[in-house]
């Protein structure tokens, strides 16, 4: 309990202006910016519909949306210094929200977080909101969820399955960002060359951050099982025997 409380306090009380993974305002050309909006919009709509549907079945679901929605917002504007890379970056948090809220709902919380950051925190951008929602919301959420389910299928325990989700969602979010940039800006240079260069440039910072994110998600799931196993049972993450 204490480490989690300390983490929450750290996140809540030491927010700092952050410059991290989101694609900044104006970097994507108009056509690409519109395309990513069009691609991300159905996922956001699907997520909104799923949240309403689940809220009707279980009113307690909104409390979970409150916790993990706020967590995604705070995580994704919290800069962590990585000495080996000499730069800062932030976790995405969408792996955690995807496991506990569901993939579509996680896209919605990512979208709202990114919108608030673009509007008020000079972080990301309104023209790049679709692209950022796709990489952090759609790719981050669904890759984290897939890694978690795969790890559970392979009999991974809760901590290591959460760890896999954290690492996968973080690293693949940045792959999404690198892909969006490479597709839009590669020009005459081969696409894969540009993609590889951008993605590799992210790695020295993102590998340590993804490990941290994995530990946080694994720890959080273990905490939930200890204190509210019924939530994980309801979400079919653990069976009644595992409680």
């Amino acid at each position: 309990m204490k480490p989690l409380v300390l983490l929450a306090l750290m996140l809540g009380f030491f927010p700092l202006p952050v410059a991290a993974m989101h694609i900044s305002e104006g970097i994507l050309p108009g056509g690409w910016a519109i395309l990513w909006f069009v691609v991300a919009a159905p996922f956001v709509a699907w997520g909104g519909w799923r949240i309403n549907q689940r809220r009707a079945i279980d009113p307690g679901y909104i409390s979970l949306v409150g916790i993990f929605g706020a967590a995604v917002f705070v995580f994704s504007c919290f800069p962590l210094p990585v000495p080996v890379a000499g730069s800062t970056a932030h976790p995405a948090g969408t792996g955690l929200s995807a496991i506990l809220l569901g993939g579509p709902a996680s896209v919605v919380v990512a979208f709202i977080s990114l919108l608030l950051q673009a509007l008020f925190l000079a972080h990301g951008g309104l023209t790049t909101l679709g692209g950022n929602t796709f990489s952090m919301g759609v790719v981050g959420s669904f890759s984290g969820l897939a890694a978690f389910k795969l790890a559970r299928l392979c009999q991974g325990n809760l901590f290591w399955s959460g760890f896999a989700a954290g690492v996968a969602s973080d690293l693949l979010t940045y792959l999404g960002t690198a892909t969006e940039m490479a597709l839009a800006l590669h020009g005459n240079t081969p696409l894969l060359t540009v993609l590889g260069q951008i993605y590799l440039a992210f790695m020295p910072t993102q590998v340590p951050i993804s490990i941290l994110e994995g530990v946080i998600i694994g720890g959080m799931l273990v905490y939930v099982r200890k204190h509210r196993p019924d939530i994980l049972c309801k979400l079919k993450i653990i069976t009644a025997e595992e409680r």
Binding site: L16, P17, V18, A19, A20, M21, H22, I23, S24, E25, G26, I27, L28, P29, P79, P81, P83, G86, S87, T88, A89, G125, T177, M181, A184, L185, H186, G187, T189, V194, Q197, I198, A201, F202, T205, Q206
Partner: peptide, 24 residues
């Protein structure tokens, strides 16, 4: 660290975008 070190959007996203002809 935050005051001394750039974020990855500055160190990677904006740097590569500038190399490829786009500026934030």
């Amino acid at each position: 660290a935050a005051s001394k070190w750039p974020g990855v959007d500055e160190a990677v996203v904006e740097k590569f975008a500038a190399q490829l002809g786009r500026t934030a």
